[in-house]
């Protein structure tokens, strides 16, 4: 079941960001670039929650694993951006696979609590291991000559990194759009809706859930690695519970039942926050009211507007 409207809207948004960036200036290019990395995190939450059926509030921990892996391995990889992104993706996938195997042994509500414990534990351990993580001050991206497929790229919140991030996100979304029309994805949907029924049809529901959760982790890890390259710095607040909660907010605003909702949610919430911050200090209050309104009138988020009310 491919969502043509969803993919077209998402690609249009990404294209608009790349086109607008040179016009709106360096500051907004940086904001856009960071937003794109958070879109990976929002998509990761949606995949974990809506398709692996795991209410994970530890996705920022996975995102942080990708970010730290990229920074730690940058000198060893001699600034090879492709390998750094791969390292972040693998790190995110590994952390998610471990979390997933543990969370699947719990009930649905137990898994939510378990994920909170993972997120808080990750934060505490990260703060304790200052020599490894840099703690609250964080770790800077080493000063290296970064290169991608033989071309030198400047790390930082710039147009080059924005284009790289949006290109990767576009490839990811197009890939998802393709996969969502395959028989394998039909099994994922079946497992998500009714795991017992899927098992009785001969499918290993637990395996499918772990694989989807691990893929969600890879997505978050890739986003984390991009974040490290764009921010040129990673601090422990990236893996905090509040960061995970933000990912839930983004996914909820965009529509938690659609992978294409996350990017819309990130853009709406983060751009609104940036703009409102120029006028008021009560940004969080206004964003909170916005979330309540969306929860009341758009429970399926912005993407819910695209769903036809009656298929009969």
């Amino acid at each position: 079941m491919r969502d043509r409207a969803g993919i077209l809207i998402s690609l249009a948004i990404l294209l608009a960001l790349c086109v607008a960036a040179p016009v709106v200036g360096e500051f907004w290019s940086g904001v856009f670039a960071r937003c794109v990395t958070w879109m990976f995190l929002a998509i990761s939450f949606t995949l974990a929650y809506s398709y692996a059926n795991i209410p994970s509030v530890a996705q920022a921990t996975v995102f942080g694993a990708g970010a730290y892996a990229a920074i730690w391995l940058a000198p060893t990889l001699q600034g090879n951006v492709t390998l750094m992104l791969l390292a972040g993706t693998v790190a995110g996938g590994l952390v998610a696979a471990v979390f997933g195997l543990l969370l699947l042994r719990m009930s649905h509500s137990g898994a939510a609590i378990g994920a909170i414990i993972f997120a808080v534990t990750g934060s505490i351990l990260g703060n304790a291991a200052v020599s490894v993580t840099g703690g609250a001050d964080g770790l800077p991206l080493p000063a290296l000559n970064f290169h991608l497929l033989g071309v030198v790229v400047a790390a930082g919140p710039n147009n080059t990194m924005l284009v790289l991030s949006t290109a990767l996100l576009a490839i990811l979304l197009i890939g998802f759009w393709y996969v969502s029309g395959t028989s394998t994805w039909r099994i994922v949907r079946a497992v998500q809706q009714n795991p017992v029924r899927a098992q009785v049809l001969g499918y290993n529901a637990a395996l499918f859930r772990v694989v989807v959760f691990t893929v969600a982790g890879c997505v978050a890890g890739l986003g984390g690695a991009l974040y490290a390259l764009i921010s040129r710095h990673v601090a422990i607040d990236v893996v905090s519970l509040s960061m995970s909660l933000k990912s839930i907010l983004w996914a909820a605003v965009g529509g938690v039942t659609s992978v294409y909702g996350g990017p819309i949610g990130v853009l709406l919430v983060q751009l609104a926050s940036e703009i409102l911050a120029r006028w008021t200090v009560r940004v969080d209050l206004i964003i909170g009211v916005m979330l309540v309104l969306i929860a009341l009138w758009l429970p399926q988020g912005i993407m819910g507007l695209l769903k036809r009310p009656d298929r009969h």
Binding site: R189, A198, G202
Partner: peptide
């Protein structure tokens, strides 16, 4: 116990694995 948003054909495709 069916999958609410899928068609009859999709259910049968799932069943034949």
């Amino acid at each position: 116990s069916l999958f609410g948003d899928m068609t009859v054909a999709e259910h049968m495709q799932l069943a034949v694995r």
